[in-house]
Amino acid sequence: MTTEETGYNFAYLDEDSKRMIRRAILKAVALPGYQVPFAGREMPMPYGWGTGGIQVTASVIGPDDVLKVIDQGSDDTTNAVSIRSFFAKTAGVATTSRTAEASIIQTRHRIPERPLKSGQIMVYQVPIPEPLRWLEPSEAETRTLHALKEYGLMYVKLYEDISRHGTIASSYDYPVEVFGRHIMSPSPIPRFDNPKLDRSPALHLFGAGREKRIYAIPPYTPARSLDFEDYPFAPQSWSQVCALCGAADSYLDEVVMDDGGQRMFVCSDSDYCASRLEKGGRTQ
C-alpha cells in the first residue's frame, strides 16, 4: 500500500520493518516490562524526538485507526503537531484531539486524564528505557541485573533519597514493577500519572528509537510504583485547581503571568480542559 502523495509505504515504514517491529511488540506483550531489543530504523525525525514511538505507531496503525498525538499533554505542541501531520500524510488516517475517540494515542510525557478504555493503545516515546541506567551505565550489566531480578541497586537509591530528603525524590520517570517481575521505566511521565498504568484496560506500548528497545504493559497488568511500607508511593498534588476549567483532579502546568511573580495553574491535558469547558465548566 503506497500513499500516492508521498511515494512511501503506508505509514512510511516498509512492511518488512513493520513485521520485525510487531514481532518485538508481541514479545514485549508476552514479557510485560521486559525491554525487547529491536533493529530500529532511522526515521525522518531526529532521534530523541519520538522515533521509537513513531516506529511503534507505524507498525500497529491501520487505515481505520483514529490517531491522537500529544506532547506535554497537549495536542498543539510543535512536536505533537509534527508527528500527527506525518501520519496524516503518510497513512492518511483520521486524527483527533479527543481522547475518547482515539484508538491509538501517541504521547510524550503524559497519560490523558480521561480514563482509557479497553481496545485503546497508548504509545510512549521513550528517551532512556533502562530504569537502572543512572545507577549502572553499562547495558551489558543492566541486562544481567534484570535477568537475575537483582534490583537491590534501585532500592538502595530509593532508600538514599529518603535518608537525604525524607522522601523518594523522583518526580517523573518514577520506576514501576510490572507483573511482579521487571522493573520498568514508565518514560518521563510525572509520577502523578503512574497509578493510571496499574491494571489499565488499555495496551501500553513503549518505544525507544535511539536505544532500540520496545516494552509493554498489557491490559489489566499490575504495575506497582516502587516504594516502602513505611514510605508509600504518593503522586503529586496541588493546592490550586485549574484556572480555566476548575478541575481539581488533573495535572497542572504552572504559567508565569508577569514579572511580579504572578502564576496561573492550568490543565496540562488540553483535551480534558477543553471538554470540561464545553460541558459548562468554569470559564474566565
Partner: peptide
C-alpha cells in the same frame, strides 16, 4: 545530535514535577 537536541523540546510537565 538527535538526543542532545531533543532537550529543545518542551519539558513543561517534567519541569513542573
Amino acid at each position: 545530535a538527535g538526543f542532545v537536541s531533543h532537550i529543545k523540546l518542551p519539558h513543561y510537565v517534567d519541569f513542573q514535577a
